[in-house]
Design a protein around this nucleic acid. Structure first.
Lengths: 205, 205
DNA sequence: TCCTTAAGGCGACAACTGTTGCGTTAAGAT
DNA sequence: ATCTTAACGCAACAGTTGTCGCCTTAAGGA
């Protein structure tokens, strides 16, 4: 490749040794994580298995990612930069319902990255941090849903977006993740429903 | 049903060999579980550690409880028969707030049995089942809170107790368990608040 | 081209997890 | 008092998880 002596601008925003072996290893390992997760679900995600599949030595994975949670966290970070945008259906209830449907789909997908990360977050500090960052980002992006509703006059101005959004989505997480209830679209709709009702009453100002 | 020739009344409700060695072993093991959980938290709850503390052989624990989740599940079953009753403050909001305070206390206790069980439920089917049964029981007992509110005319008759209770408690679980937010009594109060508001609007009928 | 040095490869290791076969104990029945 | 048998104790075992020290590789700078 180009080995020009002068004017050697760093190719990307990555420091250290950008295009080198490290990057290749990281790519191979994260690819292995994704593949194994899709093929065999969370249970297949042992550090050994991932290293094996990536053609990399165990110790390398242990040193760079520490545990399965670290692997998932890194994989999530890479995936979080998608240009996801919240739904815009024209009503608060419609937006929240659509949002809850997305949440339900993510949680009940066959090998669910979300579910895997939640499980991992109880065993790995890295995974817990990544999950929290992911959710913070999502709630941030969703704030516009609440602002639009306020602008339309559906709910009082000054309603706290995060609290409203948590109120709308939490029952779904509670049923699907903690109580392991079977998935039912009524859950998504009803949760959106009473969050909307409470918001109209000014419960989030 | 009973086809025993002579009247042979079973001494207690436990079958098999009630007062014998099995019962002693079970008692010792569950006591060890409680002790270790209080002293060192969930992390100290390895099968080996429990067996050691109980003065019982490892294999015995593995055969009877299978894993840590099984131990926690059994410990929870024993503890679930306390005569717990929901608060009765005179208003729906007061009851829900008091309830949420109890939930928050249970979740933020230093070594929290609840938190340990939630974590274990992701790794053990037994623990997941026990936790679900525990919650079902609690929601059942709490239904009276909703019925009283309806009787007082605070909320429409026919409001679904379970859905209302989930709506009131889920945001708390979401913040404390999933998002790991720092504990703040406002969480408990606000969640009780908008569940009450939505209930008044008839969102749970 | 050569040098420096993170990062990766390798093997050994200890600790933990879970299972199996077999002998022993003791609860409850005759 | 004796018998039967479920449950326990025991030891050996295999598989997994995570760490360590040491050597080798190759990226990037001179």
């Amino acid at each position: 490749m180009d080995s020009s002596p002068a004017a050697n601008p760093p190719p990307a925003e990555m420091r250290r040794r950008p295009g080198g072996r490290s990057a290749q290893v990281r790519g191979a390992v994260l690819a292995a994580v994704r593949t194994l997760l899709v093929e065999h679900g969370y249970d297949a995600l042992a550090v050994d298995t991932v290293a094996d599949r990536a053609g990399v030595h165990r110790t390398t994975v242990y040193r760079r990612w520490r545990d399965v949670g670290g692997l998932l966290a890194d994989a999530l970070d890479e995936a979080a930069d998608d240009g996801w945008r919240p739904p815009d259906t024209g009503t608060l209830h419609g937006d929240l319902h659509a949002l809850n449907r997305e949440v339900a789909d993510a949680l009940t997908a066959d090998p669910s990255l979300s579910a895997a990360l939640i499980a991992a977050s109880f065993r790995s500090e890295q995974a817990a941090r990544a999950l929290r960052a992911f959710w913070d980002d999502r709630y941030e992006r969703c704030a516009v849903v609440v602002h639009r509703a306020a602008a339309r006059g559906e709910i009082p101005a000054g309603s706290d977006p995060r609290r409203l959004l948590v109120a709308a989505t939490a029952p779904l997480y509670h049923e699907l993740v903690l109580l392991r209830s079977p998935h039912d679209d009524r859950l998504a709709r009803q949760a959106a429903g009473y969050a909307t009702a409470a918001a109209r009453e000014g419960a989030f100002v």
